[in-house]
Write a protein that binds this DNA or RNA. Structure first.
Lengths: 334, 334
DNA sequence: TTGTATGCGTTATCAC
DNA sequence: GTGATAACGCATACAA
């Protein structure tokens, strides 16, 4: 890699002159400035990022700690983060906690040594279940800003970007009740131990309560296993009054449609099915599933913007931004 | 952040003594070593990574350039990369090309300034279609090793990790012909302009040729649009001899199953459906789709291992590793 | 066993 | 308009 020193030697001028010339300092003459720049381009000179970082004590890098990236929600958030970071001249270092507390803790610690200027994270399932928060507080204490999205620790004061889990499920449920005239709505859940899962179930319960309806909840193992099909099938077979299914994740809704069809139920006439999902989710079922569409990409963008703003000016007030979801209704019939 | 200098000042010893003590140098007395270490833990000292990088001229960071991360294949590869990198004390900086040449080029350039010790990449669709390779060659010329996986540029000499696209589709097709006695196999493709897509189609064609069968190919827009359903439906309706569908991506196979069912075809009796997929893909259809299962996680692991090995010893021979796929057959019947 | 000096590549301050 | 020098935090060759 070409360095300032090499350029200086080749041009028989000092390193500082070269540096100033490249940074368009007004102190430098037109002549030398162009000479320097020409040689720099010729030798493909690029300022060493590491040296700049050491000098300025800024890494211009954001640490991104995700529970997983095979979950399409987090994948899409990552997409939004990467785009916004790049547009603002930041790199991202990505660590995956694999939903474990230990890996999350290790990742935070390892990057808290100057590698990053701040963190964007969604808390690991295990940390959330065991209510582990010390490791995150340690980071904040060391004056590295942390932004949490989606899965959030209420007790920790920091910038947050969350989904309107309660409200969106409340509205979706009320839609099923009021517009589609459903009375026995089955909620299918495999994430009830997560903060977001709890909120979604609360939204569902609240809507039923508002209409004096009885809840039906089918809890599944969170490790999406082969039994999912059977459990849903058996439940529907044994409970024939069910006239709507509301899945609070992005997979079991699809399974539910398939099982309802297998039981000979007409969709959407006899059974409404709604789930969480992304742009291409409805394509995976026929008839297309109705989805609560979380603006995952936007969540990533907003989170990154907010963190970068707080990096630039650390006197900014902490805030919690709620990103509303879209209800995308089934358009097709079978 | 605590620095060596601060520790030294507090202990009234020199910086180098502190440094050596922390690095367990045998030159340092037991006594001072423990004193230093105690204070270090107490003040939560962590060596500044940036400074270490500048000193050693190694970033211990890998640049990962992916076309997208919302495609589950790349998401799972990323998972494998992250895991292996972490296990070997490497960080990863992730950039997404969004399938565009320009972003890919920019990302490579931006990180080729000391930020990373090497790259793992899958070539962007646009770069592949337009046969753009200069930007990658530039990186290699600047002595930064590049490892390509999945989407590969044949003309570039570097380490490569690829899937057995040709062979796996050949075998899958022959399975349909020989074991399931199919004679009119429809190939559904939305990636025929990618190197991997071409290879898969070749595998299919070769198998048909071996058995003197006629190919049926349905090409779809690569932007998975709403028309996918209609196009497949219409094709199946108009071509009633089709008795098997082979999708070479991870979405259209699911759609194909749904459309076949919609047409009243019994699966798998009257119609076999096979696609590419991942562990949870079969769950998305009923009956479960048969899949060619690419070991994406393994591809990530192997790629990372290979790159890190070449980082440690740059005299190693370049190699191309082929990761075989698994054929996972439909187990259920409807 | 400990300390001093040097340099990684850059930028900034100051002197010429 | 240009250049010498110091500093960021760390590691190491060398001196004491």
């Amino acid at each position: 890699m070409t360095t300032l020193k090499e350029l200086a030697a080749l041009l028989n001028i000092s390193v500082s002159t070269v540096s100033k010339a490249l940074n368009d300092s007004h102190e430098i003459s037109e002549n030398t400035r162009t000479r320097v720049k020409e040689l720099a381009t010729k030798l493909n000179y690029k300022p060493n990022r590491i040296a700049q970082q050491l000098k300025t004590n800024k890494s211009k890098t954001i640490g991104v700690i995700l529970p997983t990236v095979t979950n399409p929600f987090f994948a899409e958030v990552l997409h939004g983060i990467e785009k916004t970071a790049t547009n603002n001249d930041y790199d991202i270092i990505v660590c995956l906690s694999n939903e474990t507390f230990l890996k999350e803790k290790r990742s935070l610690e390892l990057l808290s040594n100057g590698s990053v200027d701040g963190f964007i994270m969604a808390v690991a399932r295990e940390s959330q279940v065991k209510n582990e928060t010390e490791h995150i507080l340690d980071v904040i204490k060391s004056r590295l800003p942390v932004l949490m999205f989606d899965r959030v620790v209420n007790e920790i004061e920091c910038n947050k970007v969350i989904v309107d889990d309660f409200q969106s499920v409340l509205e979706a449920t009320e839609y099923l009740i009021e517009k589609e005239n459903r009375k026995h709505i089955l909620l299918v859940s495999n994430i009830e131990e997560l903060s977001v899962g709890k909120l979604r179930i609360e939204g569902y319960s609240k809507a039923l309560e508002n209409h004096n309806l009885k809840p039906h909840i089918l809890k599944l193992d969170h490790a999406v296993d082969v039994d999912v099909e059977k459990k849903i099938y058996d439940y529907l077979k044994a409970n024939t009054t069910i006239d709507a299914i509301l899945s609070i994740d992005h997979v079991t809704g699809i399974v539910a449609i398939n099982m309802a069809k297998k039981l000979g139920l007409k969709i959407p006439e006899e059974m409404s099915v709604m789930g969480f999902g992304f742009d291409h989710t409805p394509l995976l079922s026929s008839p297309k599933i109705s989805i609560i569409h979380q603006k995952a990409h936007e969540i990533g963008e907003i989170s990154t913007k907010l963190l970068i703003d707080s990096l630039k000016d650390d006197s900014l007030q902490l805030q919690t931004i709620v990103v509303p979801s879209d209800l995308k209704l089934n358009e097709s019939t079978d």
